[in-house]
Design a protein around this nucleic acid. Sequence first.
DNA 1: GCATAAAGCGAGCGAGCGATCGCTTTTTTA
DNA 2: TAAAAAAGCGATCGCTCGCTCGCTTTATGC
Lengths: 239, 239
Amino acid sequence: MTFAQFSRQASLSRGDICREILASHRESIKAKKEATAVKNLELIFDATLALANQKGFQAMTVRDLSRATGLSMGALYDYFTSKEELLEMVLSTGRRVVMRLLERGLQEAQGPLEQLRAAIRTHLFLSEAMQPFFFFAYMEARHLGEEQKERAKQSELATERLLAEIIQRGAKAGLMAPGDHQMAAALIKAMLQDWYLKRWKYAKRRVSVDRYAGFVERAALALCLGQGLPSPGEEMTGS
Amino acid sequence: MTFAQFSRQASLSRGDICREILASHRESIKAKKEATAVKNLELIFDATLALANQKGFQAMTVRDLSRATGLSMGALYDYFTSKEELLEMVLSTGRRVVMRLLERGLQEAQGPLEQLRAAIRTHLFLSEAMQPFFFFAYMEARHLGEEQKERAKQSELATERLLAEIIQRGAKAGLMAPGDHQMAAALIKAMLQDWYLKRWKYAKRRVSVDRYAGFVERAALALCLGQGLPSPGEEMTGS
DNA sequence: GCATAAAGCGAGCGAGCGATCGCTTTTTTA
DNA sequence: TAAAAAAGCGATCGCTCGCTCGCTTTATGC
């Protein structure tokens, strides 16, 4: 599976995402006609991600957003009741879309090794297709209220658990070396996140998602196949 | 080397860091006596990291800082000329201290394998000892001015280059498998950063730095020793 | 083509921000 | 212990923020 193939089959457009925002916030959005609502939500969604990723959501002002979208202050507030709700709106909808596509990307893979590869590629390809959103979600999670922040953490743990369970099944089937599958999953997750957190670095080096995916796959396999790997010195001094 | 050993020999105290801030900003700090200046800089440094890591530097107000330190608005402005200078002050001094300690931690290790282990442990132990600062530096880098932001990126690339050069030497000496040493270094760096970015996760699981270091070491070795590792399927569909 | 509903507007509000400065309190010096 | 120096203070300033609301403009239905 390459990124090009993934893009073709996933076909996730901003329009779909904004229709989803509209559906889940129907009561607080004043616009009556779906066409108008979706058009403006797209403007707002894009501009919010662009501005927030450039200067941070806190530093972005609603006047910035007005300038970037071409909508007046008043018109903007027909789509959210407060700046905080705007943040919550973008994050919760995005997270829901990501989760759905992640699960869809995994259901075809058969056997632990194939599943591990599918999980890695799906995660990377998704974060490539929705890079501004992934970066936004990572950096702005801590500005959320307590119960929303907890949901963000749960989302992080859920994707990690997905990896851990694959590795555990692989170990049980004798395809991977036994070891700490939770820790292995955590390290793989860290590698996956680096792709969208350090975009500027990989862009400058002209590393494509496909090449990065290949590399992470090999690293993950090396990690899972050789977990018992004897290593010189005194580790496991742990708490 | 364990974290306990590292802490003993590095002995980096807040006092030392604040003395360094004082020295490099002598002209803009109004306090005359070193003892007073260092005492208050410690209060300011600690409170800034605590507040900014909780709610973000932008969202933290100078009045918050006044409440947390017990100093009045006026007294605070005897130590920095603007909120932005406070940010720059903390970040640039911290980065200088980190760079010095990183280099010191590496100079004893002999041979690529030992150097790789030393680099991993030193980076992890440093980020453990100065966790609030590392998190702060990572999250607030993008709120800096352009030339300071560039310096932050250079700092990121410098530590990565350090790893890449070790791996390259190891491959030349035949101790590690040949491969893309820059990419291997990038992935190792991602694993190192996860330690201070996801503190809450590892704390809840009672994973100590020492145990984490052991795990990253094994992952790094698996990655470097088996880089040519044949892997199923169609990768290297690159750029 | 006119009435009515929908969408869009932007000056203006109170709140809270970063920053200042004339004054008081504390410490040092002789 | 009195004078001088240093440190500390907080009301106040100008400004910008998030947000509102009475009004205008545009689209729709008959």
